[in-house]
Amino acid sequence: MTKDQKTPEEHVKYLKDKFNTNIISADIKKRAAGSKKNETPSIWMKIDKGAFKEIVKYIIEYNYPHLAIISGNDLGNNIELIYHFTVNYGTRLGEINLHISVELPKSKPEIETICDLIPGALITEREKQEFLGVKIKNIPDNRRLFLPDDFPKDVYPWRRDEKGLEKLYKNLHEVKK
């Protein structure tokens, strides 16, 4: 289903040439498994928010990716979102994992939606909004997804700061003093 399949190294080189300063770092990790030690390559890329959508467009042009999930970290001053894509599926041992990480400052944690490019991103984008308190701009559906409607407004379970969960912490087996 692909026109020409690029190796992970070629992908990284191409993206670095095209977006140069917008790509903060790019590593290729390979992990072998089994007796034959076949390898699965993964590209871990840290990119600047500005070029994010262009890079997603590049991947879609290359080969429609599968967006597995967006995961997130609270890094103190920044919130990191990691988009886990895979491309080249459908060829025996040819799949490449592509983990694109974007850091958003906590003062303005906003990022453009990619639902217009990949409609399947909706559920995971909604989840990131309620669990990490990031703002996804132009998201087609802004409601809550997992948390109940009566859940406090300004609490985001995956945060590690004052907006985290300490207030709601409950331990069934706590020994009362």
Binding site: Y169, N171, L172, H173
Partner: peptide, 15 residues
Amino acid sequence: NTGDVFYESYNLVGP
């Protein structure tokens, strides 16, 4: 009965 591995979860009301 006891909460099991989820005993400290914020989203539970049980046991």
